[in-house]
Design a protein around this nucleic acid. Structure first.
Lengths: 246, 246
DNA sequence: TCAAAAGTGTTCGTACTACACCCATGT
DNA sequence: ACATGGGTGTAGTACGAACACTTTTGA
């Protein structure tokens, strides 16, 4: 095999070039990431919103988003946005869905990938407060910019489902938490009331809570015991088969 | 308000122009859709694959995909690809996940949105057979082109989960099916064995199966009764709250 | 001693599991 | 008659739902 390309190589190269030209053609689209960032405070589920970048164009609240750079991984873009906008790092982050309606963005065609993030508001105080960035009650969210309400609704719905099947919720709590806090969290996320005794039984039966031998402080009533979630134990023992049920 | 823009309007326009120029800048990325198309035949779960468009470049099997056009809805692109490649229409289609690793495509940066489709192989005979398009046993799928194996694995995993919680599976069966066929389907998708009696009890208890008063034909043994799934009834009666369990 | 929330058990009904026999059909 | 898979019932168990009283703490 010398320096002169043989027939097969030429075909390979031609094929590759064809693909490259197709990819590099005008067939390209602006791609963004939008983060739905949930927090939990005052026994309410919160979401982090800012004023739209198009503030003067439509002065509505919007999710935290930005365009994905051509040399940037999708997940990396989500992390970057979170970091840039909030100063936060090392948080739960998960892709939810991509939204690609043609006219969803007034600036032109932009397809966006939605990510859902869960943050412990106590531990992660916001470090950047541009664009009136702050926490909103989930219940009071109406009418966001662009199609962000749709994105938010789907993300919340997804969270409600996921939190029942996976131990995500703990990302929203301090490392050590009381069972009451845990129950308040579930009640806030799911918008339901749960029986306290059955809730406790449920979680103790799972056997993934570790008693920290500490109790709550500075309460005007009997303090509860504090627990942490044992992720290692969960990973080893989690259910594989849940059963057909719809 | 006359024809001369006032200060606010000028700001609005400037802001909009800034956004548009950002969107139209070099910050754009090729976007594709890849379809993982499942079928069910000979009591095996199948997936529809073709030879990679980069056949000469890497002669591997690949999912059915194409670039999304700048003026095309994401979902519409998925439908188009399905229709173009197979001639099929009117099938179950659902977005699964987006994949955005920088080097996932040899032709340059391409972010892809994966869709999962379920097809009744009997009713929908393939009309187009370019690129060696045909059905492969899911169990025998190895080593696809690009990152298609990753996409396929996630899609299968998602299908396994979804089929336990939602009545998707029926899209893979004829309109009228026997309980044996239904059980075979679940066993194939989930790669497990199920108890026949408990399986029947389960589905009858749901009360979403309608007895068609017909039986299977041309069998060398006692034929089973045929049923169809009552989607309307399901929509009215489906479970809302499944419970915390992980 | 009072207020407020923590902590704890039992009963009941439902739903899943495991398991074995008779029945209808075609050969 | 026989081979093949269709169709059914029961007993045991586990889990979730409903429900009320005693205990601890700080004020």
């Amino acid at each position: 095999m010398g320096t002169v390309a043989n027939g097969k190589q030429v075909k390979k190269i031609k094929s590759l070039l064809a693909i490259q030209s197709e990819v590099q053609s005008s067939n390209r689209i602006a791609l963004s990431v939008d983060c739905v960032i949930f927090g939990f405070d005052e026994n309410k589920l919160k979401v982090l919103l800012m004023r739209s970048d198009l503030k003067k164009y439509q002065s509505k609240w919007s999710l935290l988003g930005d365009l994905v750079k051509p040399d940037e991984d999708l997940d990396a873009a989500a992390y970057r946005i979170l970091k840039q906008r909030t100063g936060l790092d090392d948080v739960y982050l998960e892709q939810v869905h991509s939204f690609g309606k043609i006219n969803r963005h007034p600036g032109g065609r932009v397809v966006t990938v939605a990510y859902c993030s869960l943050i412990n508001i106590q531990h992660h105080k916001l470090k950047i407060l541009d664009n009136e960035l702050h926490w909103h009650d989930v219940a009071s969210v109406k009418d966001l910019a662009f199609d962000h309400k749709t994105i938010f609704d789907l993300s919340l719905q997804r969270l409600q489902k996921r939190v029942q099947e996976h131990p995500l919720g703990f990302s929203l709590l301090p490392n050590k938490f009381s069972l009451r806090e845990l129950q308040n969290l579930y009640e806030a996320i799911l918008s339901i009331k749960l029986d306290r005794r059955n809730f406790r039984k449920k979680f103790f039966a799972m056997n993934f809570l570790v008693d920290m031998d500490e109790i709550e402080q500075n309460l005007p009533h009997r303090p509860g015991k504090l627990y942490k979630f044992d992720y290692d134990k969960y990973e080893k023992n989690k259910k594989k088969w849940s059963g057909i049920d719809f």
